[in-house]
């Protein structure tokens, strides 16, 4: 909690000061993130509603069991844990950049901003690989009495219930909503990561140009940091909803 001793009789709501003891820009950043949380929340809860309304859903451990350069090895959760750790680590470098900003240490801010940007780019590359793998992967599906080979797209879901066909177990088409929700929500999150990387690059350039030293504070780094941590926060829930349960 706050370490500053604040008198209890402070008249927060009498005007002339922020009743939240933070600058206007930072309050508005929080409110923007709150509205964004509701957007993501609405997407995820709508996904949950659909998932609760059907008898069968794709098992994430079967859908997401691949790893780059590992061929057909069955590695459930491995790649997504790599992505999660990349994002956690880039969150740590971001909070260290904010910390250096408090100390007015420009070199430190630059160093940690570069690391954060690299983390963001690494995450985006992982997501690009995962999407490519899902869309281009071939899976045998029994459609109208014939075997077809499907990738996972917004209109095709080869992860339906198993049936016996000519003495072998084969999948049938699953609920079509799976691809739409998966690509829609992870895509919306990936777009947030992308815009976060752009914002961080702008902040790095402004730091290099010495704008924040002239201003006398590094609050812009804090605001960019709030956005970046929010992206990490959303991933925590996407990870839960799509990969773990």
């Amino acid at each position: 909690m706050s370490t500053t001793a604040i008198p209890t009789n402070t008249k927060w709501w009498n005007g002339g000061r922020s009743p939240f003891n933070v600058s206007y820009g930072k309050v508005m950043m929080w409110y923007f993130l709150m509205s964004d949380a509701f957007t993501f929340g609405a997407f995820l809860i709508s996904y949950g509603t659909i998932r609760f309304s059907v008898n069968h859903w794709a098992d994430p451990n079967h859908v997401f069991s691949a790893f780059p350069f590992a061929g057909h090895a069955n590695l459930p959760l491995a790649f997504v844990s790599l992505m999660t750790f990349i994002l956690i680590f880039s969150s740590v470098t971001m909070v260290l950049a904010v910390h250096e900003g408090h100390r007015m240490n420009r070199k430190g801010v630059e160093k940690y901003m570069i690391l954060t940007i690299l983390g963001g780019l690494a995450f985006l590359s992982c997501q690009a690989w995962e999407w490519t793998h899902l869309i281009t992967g071939d899976h045998a599906v029994l459609v109208n009495g014939q075997i077809e080979h499907w990738g996972t797209t917004v209109s095709k879901n080869p992860w339906g219930p198993m049936v016996m066909f000519e003495g072998k177990e084969v999948a049938t088409p699953g609920p079509i909503a799976f691809g739409g929700y998966f690509f829609g929500i992870t895509g919306f999150h990936g777009f947030h990561v992308f815009s976060g990387v752009i914002i961080n690059i702008i902040m790095l350039i402004k730091t290099r140009l010495g704008h924040f030293d002239q201003r006398g504070h590094y609050e812009m780094i804090e605001k960019a940091g709030l956005y970046w941590h929010f992206v990490d926060l959303v991933w925590v829930f996407v990870f839960l909803c799509f990969y773990l349960i």
Partner: peptide, 30 residues
């Protein structure tokens, strides 16, 4: 897993986003 996720969310918001260091008014409005 859901409970553990909420714990992670608490640590990210409270420490990384520094919401825990703000005054009560600010915490409540969020």
């Amino acid at each position: 897993v859901c409970i553990l996720t909420l714990a992670k969310a608490y640590y990210i918001v409270s420490v990384f986003m520094h919401l825990g260091d703000e005054i009560r008014n600010m915490i409540m409005t969020v």
